[in-house]
Amino acid sequence: MPLPTSVKLFEMAPRDGLQNEPGGIVPTGTKIALIERLAKAGMTHIEAASFVSPKWVPQMGDAAEVMSGIKRQPGVVYSALTPNLKGLENALETGVDEVAVFGAASEAFSQKNINCSIAESLARFEPVLERAREVGIRVRGYVSCVLGCPYEGEIAPGKVAEVAKALYDMGCYEISLGDTIGVGTPMAARRMIEATRQQVPVEFLAAHFHDTYGMALANLYAVMEEGISVIDAATAGLGGCPYAKGASGNVATEDVLYLLEGLGIETGIDLQAVIDTGYWITGQLGRKPSSKVALAKGRASS
Results as ranks from 00 to 15, higher is better:
Pro2Arg: 12
Leu3Gln: 06
Leu3Glu: 07
Pro4Arg: 08
Glu11Asp: 07
Met12Ile: 05
Ala13Lys: 00
Ala13Phe: 01
Gly17Cys: 11
Ile25Arg: 15
Lys31Leu: 14
Leu34Glu: 06
Ala41Gln: 05
Thr44His: 04
His45Ile: 00
Val52Tyr: 05
Lys55Ile: 14
Pro58His: 09
Gly61Ser: 13
Asp62Lys: 02
Lys71Ala: 15
Gln73Val: 03
Gly75Cys: 07
Val76Thr: 12
Val76Trp: 00
Val77Phe: 03
Ala80Lys: 04
Leu81Met: 13
Thr82His: 03
Thr82Gln: 03
Asn84Gln: 11
Asn84Ile: 12
Leu88Tyr: 02
Ala91Trp: 03
Glu93Leu: 14
Val99Cys: 13
Ala100Val: 03
Phe102Asp: 02
Ala105Gln: 06
Ser106Arg: 06
Ala108Glu: 14
Ser110Lys: 04
Asn113Tyr: 05
Ile114Asn: 06
Ile114Gln: 12
Ala119Asn: 10
Glu120Gly: 14
Glu120Gln: 15
Glu120Leu: 09
Ala123Asn: 13
Arg124Asn: 15
Leu129Cys: 12
Arg131Val: 05
Arg140Pro: 01
Cys145Pro: 05
Val146Arg: 03
Gly148Leu: 09
Ala156Arg: 00
Ala156Pro: 00
Gly158Leu: 09
Gly158Trp: 07
Gly158Thr: 04
Lys159Asp: 14
Lys159Pro: 03
Val160Glu: 01
Val160Asp: 01
Gly171His: 09
Gly171Thr: 11
Gly171Asn: 11
Glu174Arg: 13
Leu177Asp: 03
Asp179Trp: 08
Asp179Glu: 13
Asp179Cys: 14
Thr180Val: 11
Ile181Arg: 02
Ile181Phe: 08
Gly184Ile: 04
Gly184Gln: 04
Gly184Pro: 05
Met187Ile: 14
Arg190Phe: 09
Glu194His: 07
Thr196His: 04
Thr196Gly: 06
Gln198Asn: 09
Gln198Ala: 15
Gln199Asn: 07
Val200Trp: 04
Glu203Gln: 14
Ala207Arg: 01
Phe209Ser: 04
His210Trp: 10
His210Arg: 13
His210Pro: 02
Thr212Ile: 06
Gly214Glu: 08
Gly214Leu: 11
Met215Val: 00
Met215Ser: 13
Leu217Ala: 13
Leu220Tyr: 12
Glu225Ser: 11
Glu225Met: 12
Ile231Tyr: 01
Asp232Tyr: 08
Asp232Gly: 11
Ala234Met: 10
Thr235Phe: 05
Thr235Ser: 13
Gly237Val: 03
Gly239Asn: 11
Gly240Met: 06
Gly240Lys: 05
Pro242His: 10
Tyr243His: 15
Lys245Thr: 13
Lys245Phe: 00
Gly249Tyr: 02
Gly249His: 02
Val251Cys: 12
Thr253Ala: 15
Leu260Phe: 08
Glu261Phe: 02
Leu271Val: 10
Ile275Met: 08
Thr277Cys: 15
Thr277Ile: 12
Ile281Met: 11
Thr282Ser: 14
Pro289Tyr: 07
Lys292Ser: 12
Val293Pro: 05
Ala296Gly: 08
Lys297Trp: 13
Gly298Thr: 01
Ser301Gly: 11
